[in-house]
Simulated scan of single mutants.
Amino acid sequence: FGVKTFQAEDEIAAITAVIGASFGGSLAVTASSGPGIALKGEAIGLAVMTELPLVIIDVQRGGPSTGLPTKTEQSDLFISVLGRNGDCPVPVIAAQSPADCFTMAQEALRIAVEFMTPVFLLTDGYIANGAEPWPVPKAADLKPLAIRHPAKPNREGEYLPYLRDDRLVRPWAIPGTPGLEHRIGGLEKAEDTGDVSYDPDNHHRMTMIRKQKVENIAQAIPEQTVMGPSEGDLLVVSWGGTYGAVRAAVERCQHRGRSVAHAHLRYLNPFPRNLGDLLRRYRKVLVPELNTGQLRFLLRANFLVDAQGLNKIKGKPFLVGELVEKMESMLG
């Protein structure tokens, strides 16, 4: 498939190489775990400011610092959603199983190129060391990515690199295309032209545009589904590699006649557009996580729901039994 790979000398070199590849018109991906994501942070901000499409894969492990480098954890949700200077929005999605990594990697690339933005794809140590049967798809059956590189000016004989479409997405011109010379960089840029701008009103406007562009992705992803009743006593909300254990625990409670449903999130920023309404259909909400409650924090902040947490930070996945015990205690 003509894929080029190389081992960079450090995390900063890796992310900046990916930015350069994207600027040159190529699909580009870099991968690391928590400490490496911290080192990539400044350059991820550059990718947000320049609005270039690329994917950052974070295989989460126990932290902070070197932490538990061979053990699983889900503690990088905050750094993925919030961990850069300034108002710096980045879409975040997460795989739920080893096979789902293939699907969500394609989805990360789709979102990146359709919305001209860097995208985080989160997995974790449990998924990375796991395995499951997976039919290798035929390349011809995969939906191609809609990549468009303009070849002519987009306004009255000139090229404006930040002239946006209805979804606030800018064009992706390849450097060296005749007549499409343009400026990009980390300094704030004037709307449409991309020229350096210190105008306060322009900075406010551009910040809000970048924010709204990421929020618009909610209209281009599936609505959230649930396994179980559409309303009831308890909704269990999970994400990432906890999928299998949580699904099994919910099914066990359902077989006991309990009014419990399961919503597994694969889109974490922005959330699915129907998630708030869905959460409010249940009397109680439980969020099991292998961290101190990062998704629970975001759900409470965004939707004002009294979500409760079950948190485990031991470098080990959840046991089905401990999940069932927590669900039963909440159901009474």
Rank of each mutant, 00 (worst) to 15 (best):
D124V: 03
G63P: 02
T70N: 03
V320L: 03
K314F: 10
E73Q: 15
L160R: 01
Y267P: 02
E231G: 10
F1R: 07
L160Y: 05
D141Q: 15
K152I: 05
A14D: 10
P137M: 13
K314S: 15
V119P: 10
G86I: 02
P288M: 08
K40E: 00
R252K: 14
R110T: 14
G67S: 00
M104E: 10
L109W: 09
R258C: 03
E251H: 12
L109M: 05
T117C: 11
V250A: 05
G34N: 02
N274T: 13
N154S: 14
G176I: 06
V320A: 05
G86L: 04
A108M: 04
P53M: 03
P200G: 04
A99G: 13
V305D: 09
C101I: 15
T30K: 01
H149A: 14
E215Y: 08
K71S: 10
L163F: 14
L298D: 00
E328P: 07
T16M: 15
I15D: 12
F303D: 11
A131T: 15
L39K: 14
G86F: 07
N302F: 13
L304V: 06
K4P: 03
C88A: 11
L323E: 01
N154M: 06
R273M: 11
V119N: 04
A99T: 08
D58R: 01
V59C: 05
L54M: 06
T30G: 01
Q60P: 01
A128Y: 02
G276D: 08
V81Q: 04
H262T: 07
I37R: 15
Y126V: 04
I184G: 05
L160G: 01
V55D: 08
N129Q: 14
D76H: 08
T177A: 08
L168T: 07
A151N: 06
Y198D: 14
